[in-house]
């Protein structure tokens, strides 16, 4: 995975507390040069007394950053809290971490939390690049906002239902209560999802001491059960109706183009259905497709055998002289 640290120095952030600490643009390399005092402050920041908006680098990434609770979080009558995760899980635990932040800020118990993977749809979900170790840095504020907003929407729904002012209603773990009544998140879910979404400025946020999950090291991967039973779905496991499988014969040296090819033997492999040429782009390839010849088949093994049966006459590449 490509990690471009230079493009993403640690997000400028403001921590409010006893004293006012501002840490700006500390890249991993630049960090070494920071004075001893600033270093100590960075390691031991004053406790966050209040949660105030800070500038998030993610908002300037292509397609930006969304923070709509109705898009990312849903509460249902069965008491479950489902979080849509729009970044890719690679073992870094992002599906678990997103759910932890929502659980803490909302006040849900971990057993209520579920995650669903978003499809690739950046206009809808915002930037989905999962690189640079920054999904959490870029999203913790949005996640806390969405969790706190949902908590307030539950409070507002209860206040409306009970005919009292929202200030008379408070939230606990999976519980919304007034002096005389209480209800679970599930009981209020439908009403809460209909409430107007509160603004960031009008919300109260949890303090660090109130977190039950963030930073406690007590939560195991939310996908653990699926992983050990083989039910976890990885990219290659997705099966769609009528789906075919393809394997691509790549240039032996980057940049080499197909001069000619013979697909007769490949097409005779049982299960092989079509052969397609994917143009090889000019160097430098950058992020463009590598190109080659694709064998499309009823299953992967047929596609592999078909590829092995292709006879391809590759042209020269200016990288021919290099050896790995």
């Amino acid at each position: 995975m490509l990690r471009d640290i230079s493009q993403d120095p640690t997000t400028a952030r403001t921590l409010q507390g006893a004293g006012h600490v501002e840490i700006q643009n500390i890249s991993r390399r630049g960090f070494l040069g920071v004075s001893g005092k600033a270093f100590a402050l960075a390691l031991f920041p004053a406790p966050v007394q209040a949660f105030t908006r800070f500038k998030v680098r993610g908002s300037s990434m292509p397609q930006g950053l969304r923070e709509d609770p109705l898009l990312f979080v849903s509460l249902t009558a069965d008491g479950l809290v489902t979080v849509i995760v729009h970044r890719s899980e690679m073992g870094q635990g992002i599906r678990t971490s997103f759910a932890m932040v929502i659980a803490d800020e909302l006040g849900a118990d971990w057993t209520q939390m579920r995650v669903r993977q978003a499809p690739g749809d950046e206009p809808k979900y915002g930037n989905q690049d999962t690189d640079g170790s920054r999904s959490m840095r870029h999203h913790i504020q949005a996640l806390r906002y969405m969790g706190a907003a949902m908590r307030q929407m539950l409070i507002n729904a209860a206040a409306a239902e009970w005919g009292v002012d929202a200030s008379q209603v408070s939230a606990g773990v999976n519980e919304i209560k007034s002096a005389s009544r209480s209800a679970t998140f599930g009981e209020l879910a439908a009403g809460a999802m209909q409430q107007p979404v509160p603004r960031f400025e009008d919300l109260t946020f949890k303090t660090e001491e109130q977190f039950r999950y963030i930073g406690k090291g007590s939560i195991l991967a939310i996908d653990l059960d699926d992983i050990v039973t083989g039910k976890a779905v990885y990219g290659a496991d997705v099966a769609l109706a009528g789906m075919k499988y393809a394997v691509i014969a790549r240039p032996p040296v980057i940049g080499a183009k197909v001069l000619s090819y013979d697909s007769e033997a490949a097409l005779e492999v049982p299960g092989v259905e079509r052969i397609l040429m994917i143009p090889v782009n000019d160097l430098p390839i950058g992020f463009a497709p590598l190109g080659g010849i694709a064998v499309i088949a009823a299953h992967t093994d047929a596609a592999i055998k078909g590829r092995d049966a292709l006879v391809i006459n590759w042209g020269d590449s200016r990288h021919d002289g290099y050896d790995s």
Binding site: G91, A221, D223, L224, I227, V228
Partner: peptide
């Protein structure tokens, strides 16, 4: 599978099956 859960063995899980 019980032990794997108890110790939270996997990271991405791809090799774990």
């Amino acid at each position: 599978q019980v032990a794997w859960r108890q110790l939270g063995v996997p990271q991405c899980g791809y090799c774990q099956v």
